[in-house]
Design a protein around this nucleic acid. Structure first.
Length: 199
DNA sequence: ACATTAACAGGAA
DNA sequence: TTCCTGTTAATGT
């Protein structure tokens, strides 16, 4: 804790940039951060949203590479930067830290496999439901409450759908009583229901 | 069919 | 003023 620095990143600010040297392991204390990239044609895409409690960026640290993706705060966020030396010291000396990291990696791998599964098998409405539920993974993102402060404008690229399609899906899910649609975000009322939603 | 892009008006921050 | 939402029309697969 003494060596980890904590910074407040304003909404829209960079948490880290593609191409940066990776000097820290990054944790979200509060707020919401998107991990994204830009295609060769110039189209921006978001890969994951990381809410409070989530850690990322260990890949570039472990492989001693530069950052592969941008991370941008979707709203004002408190971000913890653990220096590489601290990260490797803990990795070399602390069993609990290793276990924590292993569980993180395992859960994230499961999240990505599920994401591919959803994209191949589910219709857009069900995909929106499934991915919203995934943002409430209790292992990866402990201590989340039910309000998900992410606009439909950001949700579209995150889910690989147009904003308009996301809008219609959200309203269908709202009519099903699983969530409510607010300005700039959604309030999840029934995570289990979202998981089980099939259209 | 069904999703996407483009465009626009009205509301929120 | 800028961003977000809800909606429609045109377009594409």
């Amino acid at each position: 804790m003494a060596e980890t620095l904590v910074r407040l990143i304003p909404s829209g600010g960079f948490v880290c940039r593609k191409g940066d040297r990776a000097e820290h392991w990054i944790g979200i204390v509060s707020g919401l951060v998107k991990v994204s990239s830009v295609s060769p044609e110039g189209k921006p895409t978001t890969f994951i949203g990381v809410p409070s409690g989530g850690w990322f960026g260990e890949g570039a640290l472990l492989k001693r590479e530069s950052r592969r993706y941008d991370a941008i705060a979707l709203r004002s966020s408190v971000v913890a930067y653990m220096p590489r030396n601290t990260f490797f010291l803990l990795l070399d000396t602390n069993v609990h830290f290793n276990r924590f990291l292993l569980v993180q990696l395992n859960e994230r791998l499961g999240q990505f496999v599920a994401m591919v599964e959803h994209q191949r098998f589910l219709r857009p409405d069900a995909r929106v439901a499934a991915e919203l539920a995934a943002l409430f993974n209790p292992v990866l993102y402990p201590g989340n409450h039910s309000i998900l402060p992410i606009s439909q404008e950001e949700l579209g690229p995150l889910l690989g759908l147009s904003r308009q399609r996301v809008n219609s899906a959200l309203h269908r899910l709202e009519r099903a009583g699983l969530l409510t649609v607010d300005y700039g975000g959604v309030t999840v009322k029934d995570v289990q229901g979202l998981r089980e939603y099939a259209g």
